[in-house]
Nucleic acid binder design. Structure first.
Lengths: 254, 254
DNA sequence: CGTAGTAAAAATCATACTATAAACTACCGG
DNA sequence: CCGGTAGTTTATAGTATGATTTTTACTACG
């Protein structure tokens, strides 16, 4: 496994990313021992301080568990906090498990329509403005650019914010990861086959503007469904190849 | 603020809990500086290693952000990963923000009926057995005991597992925290006013057994709604008083 | 069968030194 | 005289290393 952390990152981050990606990619299986001290043959050389702090960071995400005398081991998958932004980023960094992404879309389908519904009911004028501004940026930027990705994320993020439920808003990270995943796919297929589903975005916006909760929810459900189907369709056209660099670039936005 | 960490915990955990609870309780406001070195007047005395590892752990949850030269500060609330099990535990440890719990119930209402629906469609016989066993334990144990809490959590957890979506399952922690919160309330009011909503649990189980997804979803929605209303009703009967000890005991289950 | 001893690994402590980026200063050109 | 820019300072996080303590699974002994 090639160490994907760039050398400009702090040593702590290099070590953390490296171990995390080994775990998320399945390179280190659940139950496997994580070395007590920094492994000289692991692609990095760090002191024990850095290494231990990295392990604490990973244990905070549920990826590893330390027990005295037994050692530090990779935790079972059920303990991983899959909704954590870092975990999603790491999961996205390697070879992507298609089923997992499908699960994320499924979760979005449960959550985002409700977020749109609440946003329609609870939004302030300022929040509506922000959603509209993001939509405008989506309309006016060329597809595939970083600008439109940022706009898309801002659009969905603003809707979460307008829903007025901070706990709900934490699921924003799921939207981010699915969006980055679909971008990664689209780069590998015929661009003409794909179009940003602007119409869906527009009518969700209108429903929120009109404070029509049910309609906002319905349209958002369609939007997420369309996004999933587009992504699945893109999968069929995917040719194998190295897409790492593009994803790395996108990741730096966050 | 009294340090709620028991002295039998590891020093690392005491420090982590102490700082985290200060943040979650609002004692340390967003943007506030977190001391560079362990604060002698903070209720604990630890070396810098332990203290730094605690800070890394907290930064993994999004609670704090370190920047060279500027210092380490409490992150804005929007960066907190409110769905993280630790965060929910810390949020529950202090004085509870009623609105926040209401938000958690709202999220449950979006997620859990769908989990029940999927569970009805995808469950294996073994998974159904586990749900049924948990239900039986709920029926056969006296109310208010730890046994019934464990059974209730196992019931909801089994349904999440049966839904076959690991990302969805991560939201189990939300169920745990709302359940513990409602238990905490119920201890402070007239016990005769409350009854475990067994009927709701039973018909959800039956729907899952019959693989009737829509019905399972509908009944689960009722269950969550009932739970919320019971909890809100209990709030009205709450007399002020120290409930910390009981919660501490419950927390140890996890 | 239980009990005391052993050791492996995490946890803790203490003390260095380094790198970074924000703030400040001094210089230079307009 | 003003404004900006390049260099310097410095506070703080980050990194490094070695030693000690605590916990606990395992083992050997009574």
């Amino acid at each position: 496994m090639i160490n994907t952390a760039s050398s400009s990152d702090s040593l702590f981050r290099q070590v953390t990313d490296s171990i995390a990606i080994s775990i998320l990619s399945g390179d280190l299986e659940a139950g496997a021992l994580v070395p007590t001290e920094p492994d000289p043959g692991a692609g990095f050389s760090a002191s024990r301080s850095v290494y231990r702090e990295a392990l604490k960071y990973l244990s905070a995400k549920g990826l590893i568990e330390a027990r005295q005398r037994s050692g530090t081991r990779v935790a079972p998958r059920s303990a991983w906090n899959l909704l954590d932004p870092d975990i999603l980023r790491w999961a996205l960094a390697g070879k992507i498990d298609e089923d997992f992404v499908r699960n994320l879309y499924e979760l979005r389908l449960f959550v985002e329509p409700n977020a749109a519904r609440l946003a329609a009911l609870r939004r302030t004028p300022e929040q509506l403005t922000r959603i509209g501004a993001a939509l405008t940026r989506m309309e006016q930027n060329p597809p595939y650019g970083d600008a439109i990705i940022e706009a898309d994320l801002d659009y969905h993020g603003s809707i979460f914010d307008a829903a007025g439920n901070p706990a709900l808003t934490c699921l924003k990270s799921v939207v981010i990861s699915t969006l980055l995943w679909s971008m990664r796919l689209q780069r590998n297929k015929d661009p003409s086959l794909f179009s940003v589903p602007l119409a869906d975005h527009q009518r969700v916006y209108r429903a929120i503007a009109q404070q029509n909760g049910e309609q906002a929810g319905t349209y958002m459900a369609t939007l997420v469904n369309d996004a999933l189907h587009d992504a699945i369709a893109a999968l069929r056209h995917t040719r194998s190849g190295d897409t790492t660099k593009h994803i790395e670039k996108i990741n730096q936005i966050y």
